[in-house]
Design a protein around this nucleic acid. Structure first.
Lengths: 343, 343
DNA sequence: CGTTTTAATGCAACCGATTTAATTCCCAAT
DNA sequence: ATTGGGAATTAAATCGGTTGCATTAAAACG
């Protein structure tokens, strides 16, 4: 490989008979360069196939020209869809997108410690991870803007955020089941006390409790299942719940993934859906459409896009006031829910 | 915000009473620092909460400390799973992962032009995109190692790669159907002439033809469907194919996503699976398990991991000989295939 | 005890851009 | 003719690390 060294700005300057400073200005469209020299310089740039060294530019401007996205378990369809929304906008800008995937509490700590510095990224997008009380002040002191997507704590007013009202969503799902005549309604969701401080499932559960309360239905411990955000785990929980003497006639799963687990359990136990059991999920990911699962739709792709928009605004305008945007949810009725039959 | 400026290596040096060079060496675990000074320095580092400026480090070492991954449509489960494998390994290194998602031929051209420079990335991972004949020489001249994952051209011997024998996979799927007694076997896959130069579907089709040929079965034009890699498109194609007078009794879809489309078409048309129609997919993504789709499993996550391993090797050892690794495929029999009944 | 090694540290150049302050040049105004 | 002003450009400092070379201090050796 005869790899002729990459051209530097000095090479260009020399060949064009100007100083490096002028080349820099020409490239960055400064008005302080005469039209004539600019043309000459750009010719040389093309000739030498010159591209500015990003590392040098970053160092001298003090901008990272990159955005870091911190996500947990990014293969989860809901996360990946959000990420995709973010990417779709970022790719139109000059910012690079650096991904940090968090799968353990240690990774999370490192990330939160080291990332929000100016040299690493100009901005940070945190998806589906709620900072804990200890972490909030740290993040608040960050040198770069931080935008949160899908984190529910109402007290996080210092950050721009894009969220969904998961309490309302959980209520919506449960109310629909109640409206169908169900009174024995189970809930299957994530572990509420988890090292990642995921709160979506907890919020949806709160909504579930609210709806039950409003309808005068007592929540029953044996209708409550908590486990990993995972199809198989949900199936296990559902099997257990459905094997009880007075089994629920409907189940609200706090994600579509878990709803699928419930459906699998029902099938294994010979229960017909929706005749014997109604199932409703949350998210409206593709598999819900494929299987015809009734669910609460939230705007995943849009949340990523909107998050980036907020971040870009904050980057341009440092005095940008933190906004809190709540994206709508929508009930999508499909085939896994039906009226309660008999008692 | 009283943002006290971030500490630099000189601040640490001054406070610890040593020179910046020594601090640098201490941080980088050079053996040229006495245990005692190192301790003292590290104390100051903690005290000042010092983190080296990455941009500066990149510039002075000439290493980008980052790996760029170029992927098409990264929400596709198969792509996302590969990416996850790559991330899982990279997160244990000091390399950042920069994603470039390609959704149009223009983006692709820009990426291939600008990325493979030393200042942008130390290495590049290209997933599921086969370079065209014009692009190969460009990439071959790149200043950094490039590893290809899931690109089938046999002539790409200058790059390390991780692939799957899609021809064999297609043959395996088709042979299984033949073995079950099917002779009217349809194929539904991606558009073969596409701007992204995706070849997986084409290769699987080749395997399909080989299997038919070997069994003495003539390929029939009306059993061939090509369309976007998309469930709905596959459903449309399948509906068309299954509506013909002498409809196929089995369909090989070149991905699980498309197999799901075929299943939906069958359901709409009142065909029972597998009694009236056998369906086999490819990839073994989660939805195949959920729906019990017979499929050809390939090691998606592992391919990403292995790709990174090869890249890291190439980074450490510049004289690294390009390896070509072929990951195994495996037939996973589930419920959507069965013996051909009658004629 | 003087000399040679060796270990530890300091000094200064460098990476490749940006940017401020200084300089040159040209023209208009006095 | 002199000077003031503005535009275009250059020179040099800077960003914050790394690293080869010089230097010093301490240990080992004869």
């Amino acid at each position: 490989m005869i790899s002729k060294k990459t051209a530097t700005i000095r090479d260009v300057a020399h060949k064009a008979g100007v100083s490096p400073g002028t080349v820099s200005r020409a490239i960055n469209k400064s008005p302080l360069v005469s039209e004539e020299t600019r043309r000459r310089i750009m010719d040389v740039v093309r000739e030498l196939d010159y591209v500015p060294n990003i590392a040098a530019r970053r160092l001298s401007t003090g901008k990272a020209l990159a955005v870091v996205v911190i996500v947990p378990f990014f293969t989860r369809p809901s996360v990946s869809e959000r990420l995709n929304g973010a990417l779709s906008l970022l790719s139109q800008t000059q910012y690079d997108l650096i991904i940090h995937n968090i799968e353990s509490p240690e990774q999370r700590a490192i990330c939160f410690d080291t990332i929000p510095r100016r040299d690493q990224a100009d901005g940070v997008l945190i998806i589906s991870i709620s900072p804990t009380d200890d972490e909030v002040p740290k993040l608040a002191q960050a040198e770069v803007p931080i935008v949160l997507i899908d984190t529910s704590q109402p007290e996080l007013t210092m950050f721009p955020r894009v969220t969904v009202d998961d309490v309302a969503g959980g209520r919506m799902a449960t109310e629909y089941l109640i409206q169908l005549g169900h009174t024995r309604i189970g809930f299957i969701g994530d572990v509420m006390e988890n090292p990642f401080n995921f709160r979506a499932s907890r919020d949806r559960y709160t909504g579930y409790l609210e709806a039950l309360g409003q309808a005068g239905i007592a929540a029953r411990q044996e209708y409550h299942g908590e486990g990993e955000h995972d199809r198989c785990e949900a199936r296990r929980l559902a099997r257990e719940m459905l094997a009880r003497p007075e089994r629920p006639t409907a189940v609200f799963a706090s994600s579509d993934t878990q709803a699928v687990g419930v459906l699998e359990a029902a099938r294994e136990m010979g229960l017909c859906v929706p005749e014997d059991l109604s199932v409703i999920g949350y998210d409206d990911i593709e598999v819900a459409d494929i299987l015809g699962v009734t669910t609460v739709r939230q705007l995943l792709f849009a949340s990523g896009q909107r998050g980036v928009e907020l971040l870009l605004e904050a980057l341009e305008n440092p005095e940008f006031e933190p906004v809190h945007e709540v994206l709508p949810t929508e009930l999508v009725v499909r085939g896994t829910t039906g009226p309660a039959l008999g008692i």
